[in-house]
Structures are given as structure tokens and as C-alpha cells.
Design a protein around this nucleic acid. Structure first.
Lengths: 344, 344
DNA sequence: GCGGAAAATTGGATCGTTCCAAATCCAGTT
DNA sequence: AACTGGATTTGGAACGATCCAATTTTCCGC
């Protein structure tokens, strides 16, 4: 274990050429003569040389990493996003610097500061809930390209900022789900779950309300139920849907976790989702397809979003002059059994 | 966007001291006089200085990162493990270099080679299925501390290797589940799911078989069913449990995903898990607690494993001389409704 | 066997930081 | 005024690679 690291100098000495020549061979330049190249390559293998990218980056004044900061890795949606990012970065020869914040804005500040010291070519940030754009601007400075994913930190003046933004088409997605339920004859449709102050929940509620109004319906306050975006909390809050006389017959849920929780809650009240009550989700997590009943939901393909984000940030790193972009990724309605309940 | 990076030299010039002094202030040395320190700190803030850890690491011949290579990030078990690793590394001032391999040994080789070029202080590897210890040994070399998590690559001579190994107590876990079912009166118990050649599946099967034999029972070949470790494949293979006349009345499943799939498959045959057939899982993923019926399973606390792994690898990085270690993490049987079915 | 161009190789400076030995400063003694 | 010794500060050489201008080698035609 632990001999001194082998360097270009060792290789150069070992086969009687200069460091510069070894460097040329390493980078696959066409300049060195075939015989020299062979000699050097043999020596590289013989000594078990490992390239030191940090040293090279220092001289070349460039970076070969991108920082990825994730609010909640244990959520499969973000884990998949991360996998997509890493996949695309790896393919482009970059390495992923991971930081997870556990939804804590304070930890996020520390994590970002620490990652910046490693001089990433760019930063992909899925912000913690309650992130503040001003504090973010403070740590991030203005030198590094930033792409914000999925939710908007507060107090960001996007028009004046150089940050890219990429999110799902929350509004249209919720509208699609709502229209789908309307087509099945439902009139009393709830919007169930999520924290109302989060930007994604706001957008989804908006799409829902717009679709309702377009059909001449006004959502009643009792149909808007807040929950933590988890299965458990959703299950326990199911009751609050059924307090009024105008109880809904269907619900557009904030996301799949909430929808699955709602279905559990319905079961506890001896209501069968899909038969007695229609439910839709959001995200199309893997279990949506195999739950009973299978969940109607909006597919978002987080892995593809990750790849997209990675490619975008690399593009900005290459050409810092190109302007920032707001990307809204399309979502696809997947119709399954949970929304089969109809109203005559 | 993109002015030149601010360096210690800029700071030194900016407040009329030498680079060495600035460096001392940066590292919080007690040497500089209070007045000097204040002057320098003001200048650092004024110019928006960002430390360049790569350059510092180069000079100091040390590293401030650890590589984390994960076979499947979209599996919540590994995502949680990753979150635990990152948490502990971050707390120790290290940064996580992420690599995901998507269960491909070839990609794993490339990913490892690329990560090594960034000179990590250590490597935590959750190997792709089918990893070969010899090829791994080739890329990894002998200079960097390695901790292998969760499964054993083939052809590793652990006695001669410097790699740490950390896995769950698969054998005891499966035995616990089996004994639990035996206590409920079951005699015909299947072991359902997983790839028989994977090391974790082998260990779990072993624990199951030992518990059976300890109760004077010999597992029948028809009770050992292989599946991909996914919900979907498990659901479709449910039928193969019921082909023989001695159909089992209970199953120890390879993991929770498989167990949930089996419960779906049972439902399709109008058997209710927990009432007509007893089921146990492995992992205690979040949904195990909220499925219907709730799943009896073995809790493994992947996040804590991640923290443990991180701390272990840092310890080895500090003291390369300490020997390699095989760590077997305990698992806890969580009894829920899915195993309530009893045999009189 | 010579001039000249193309091909191949190389020394030395450099990236941003830290290490180290040496230089400077500044009271307090004689 | 010279001297001492602790407290501060500092210049210049590293770390491991690359860039660049300059040098050396090779090859070719005549």
C-alpha cells in the first residue's frame, strides 16, 4: 500500500525522453513518432501510471467536474435525476461532485461553498425547500454557470440573473389530469396534497384551477387539501376530503406518493380507488404502474431531465456568453385504472 | 459572467502583504498578527476570493475527496446509502465524487478509471452485478483504500487483499424471517426471488436453508424460485410457486421489491397475503410500512451503513497501515401484517 | 555531402497554493 | 547604542501537469 505516486517525470526518466514528450503521448497528440509513443506507453503500463487530472486542470485553467446538489436523494424522482446527470456527464468525460442537502437551506449553503472550492465547470442545483435566492447568489457568485432544477428559490429576479431554470410543466400537467377527470364526468374534483407555498405545488394548483374554470366550475376551498408530500401524511389526511356535504368524487394529487397515500386512506374508508373515487398522481414513479389499482399519472422521465440538465450546463460552460434559459419540460398523461371511476 | 479567478496573489497585492501571509490567514494559522489578519480578511471579502482546493491539494500531496461508485442509484436502498456516505463525508470536510454504473461491469471499469484520475482519498464501491475482482484489482491498483459494499465481486482473494468489505447480515436475516414463519406454524416455506448467483442471494438462501434444517425440514427444489430482483418480474413468476402438489404456504422473499411483487401476484390469484399466505421481505424500504398488507421485513438502515462506510474509508485514508476489515452489519426483523397467516 | 524544410523533441516558465529557511521587526536589556 | 530573542513576515522552490518557443533530428532532392 501507498508507494509514492508515479508522475510524468518518472516515466520520462524511465524511458529516456522529456516530460513534454510523455505529456504529448498521454494526450494522444499525433506529434510523437510511433516508436517513441510505443516506448512511452510501455513504460506507462510498466510503472502503473495514473493521470493526475487536478494538476492538468490547474495548468490548463479548466475544470473537468460539475457539481450536483440534490435536496433529497432518497426520493426516487431526484435519485433518478441524479443518475441521468451522472450518466451524461460521464459520457462527456466529466465527473460528478455530489452534494445532498436533506432539504436544509443552511446545509445547502455550506455544501455549495465547499463544492465551489473544487472549481466545478458548472452547478446543477435542485434547491432545498425554503431556499432563498439572495443567499444563493451570495455563495454562488457570478463566475460559475448555474442551472436550477425543479423549484424556484424565493427572491430570484430571473430577468436579471444568469441562472438557467429547468422545471416540469406542472401547470399543464395538472390541467391535463383535471381535464381527464372532467371528461369522465366528474364535477367535484379536489386538489390533494403538497405544501401550498412550494413553487411546484402552486403551479400544479394553478393548472388545476384553470382547467376547472375553463369547464365553468369554481373549486371550493374544502377541495384544496395541504399535506406533506409523503405517502404517510397523505393517508392520514384523507378524512379531510369528506367533511363537507359537497365531498369530491375525484382528486388530482400533488404527486404519486400523495396519490398512493390517498388510495390507502380511501381503502381504510372502504372506498375503492378507481371504482368509487378517481385518483391521479404526478411523476410516474415505478410503483405507479404496479399499485392496485394502477395509478393514472403524469410521466416526467427524471432520468432524461438529468441528462438534459447535464448537457445544458456543459454547453454553458463551453460558451459562457450564451444567455440563460427557462426550460419547461413536457409531461405525458398516462391513463391507468385509478381514474376509471366515472360519474354518469 | 466569467472574470478571471481571484487568487492569493491578487489578495496579497491588494493589501500589501506577501502570498505566504495570505495563505496563513486562509488556513487560520495563529502566526499572523491580529491587525494583519483583519486586513487580509477584509480584502478576501472585498474581492470575493474563492479558495482553490485543487491547487492546495497538489502542493500538500493530499486529497479532499472520496469516490462513491453505485451500481443502481434508482434503487432507494442504494440512494439512501449514498445519502449517508455524502452526509458523513461532508461533515468531515470531504467531497463526494459520484459514479453510477447502472449494473454494468464495463461501465464500472471506465467510471473507476476516470474517478481515480481525480486522486480520491479512498473509494467506496457497491459493485455492479457480475463484477470481476481481477479486473477491479487492475484498475484500482494498490495505492488507494477501497471499501466494497453489499456484494462480493467474483475471484477476490480477501485474505490477500487490502480491501475492506461491508455487507448486511444476509444469512442471519433470512434465518430470522424463516424462524418467524416456522413459529407461526408454517412447514412448507419457499425462498422466492433474486438471482441465485449473486452473493447476497446465496447468503440469504443459506440462512433460510439452515433455519429450515434446524427445524428438521428439508427445502424442496420447487420452493426455490429465481427472479430478477424487481417487483414486475416477481409478480409474473408467482405462478411457479403453485405448480407442485406441495405448494408452499409462506415465502421468505429475496427483498422487499420481490415481496411486493409476490403480493401483487397472489392478489391476481385471489390469495390475500397475510391471510392466506405469509410473506416476508428484506430491506424495509419506505413503502413496506404502508403497503396493504404492511410487509414484515428486515430493517437494514442503509443511511447508517453509508455513514459507517464513509467513516471507515476516512480512517483508512488517515492510517493506511491498519488492516482490512470484514464488517457484517446487523439487521432487525420488523413484524407486520403480511406474515400474520398462520397454520394451525 | 549539403541546404533546407518538415518532423520530432525539449527546456523552462507557468497554473494557485503551501512549505521552509531565512529575513525583518520590535520591545526590553545591558 | 549594541544586543537579544520572540513574534511576524517573506522570497523562492516546490506539487504534477501543460504550453510555447526554440532546438535537434530526420529526410529529401540535387
Amino acid at each position: 500500500m501507498n508507494g509514492r505516486r508515479v508522475t510524468v517525470t518518472d516515466i520520462a526518466r524511465g524511458c529516456g525522453v522529456s516530460r513534454a514528450t510523455v505529456s504529448l503521448v498521454l494526450r494522444g497528440s499525433p506529434l510523437p513518432a510511433a516508436a517513441t509513443r510505443a516506448k512511452v506507453e510501455a513504460e506507462l503500463k510498466r510503472q502503473g501510471y495514473v493521470y493526475n487530472r487536478a494538476a492538468a486542470n490547474l495548468r490548463q485553467r479548466r475544470s473537468s467536474s460539475v457539481a450536483l446538489v440534490i435536496n433529497d436523494l432518497s426520493n426516487p424522482f431526484f435519485a433518478d435525476f441524479a443518475a441521468g446527470v451522472d450518466e451524461a456527464l460521464g459520457a462527456a468525460g466529466y465527473v460528478t461532485l455530489l452534494g445532498s442537502t436533506g432539504e436544509s437551506p443552511e446545509r445547502q449553503q455550506r455544501v455549495l461553498a465547499s463544492l465551489l472550492e473544487h472549481d466545478p465547470a458548472g452547478i446543477i442545483l435542485s434547491p432545498a425547500e425554503g431556499s432563498d435566492g439572495v443567499s444563493l447568489g451570495q455563495v454562488l457568485g457570478v463566475h460559475v454557470p448555474v442551472l436550477v432544477f425543479n423549484r424556484e428559490p424565493s427572491h430570484v429576479r430571473w430577468s436579471a440573473s444568469h441562472w438557467d431554470y429547468m422545471a416540469l410543466d406542472n401547470r399543464r400537467g395538472a390541467a391535463l389530469a383535471t381535464r381527464h377527470l372532467l371528461e369522465r364526468g366528474h364535477r367535484r374534483i379536489a386538489f390533494f396534497g403538497g405544501h401550498a407555498e412550494s413553487s411546484s405545488c402552486r403551479d400544479r394548483r394553478r393548472g388545476y384551477a384553470e382547467a376547472m374554470r375553463a369547464a365553468g366550475l369554481e373549486p371550493e376551498p374544502g377541495w384544496l387539501v395541504e399535506t406533506a408530500p409523503t405517502r404517510l401524511d397523505a393517508a392520514t389526511r384523507t378524512a379531510s376530503l369528506f367533511t363537507s356535504r359537497h365531498a369530491p368524487t375525484a382528486a388530482v394529487c400533488y404527486n404519486d406518493a400523495v396519490a398512493l397515500g390517498l388510495m390507502l386512506g380511501l381503502g381504510a374508508r372502504s372506498l375503492a380507488a378507481g371504482r368509487d373515487f378517481a385518483v391521479t398522481g404526478f411523476d410516474d414513479i415505478p410503483e405507479a404502474a404496479v399499485s392496485t389499482p394502477a395509478l393514472t399519472t403524469l410521466a416526467t422521465d427524471p432520468r432524461a431531465r438529468g441528462r438534459q440538465a447535464a448537457e445544458r450546463i456543459l454547453e454553458r460552460a463551453r460558451r459562457p456568453d450564451i444567455g440563460a434559459v427557462r426550460g419547461i419540460a413536457p409531461v405525458r398523461l398516462i391513463i391507468r385504472a385509478s381514474s376509471e371511476a366515472t360519474i354518469a
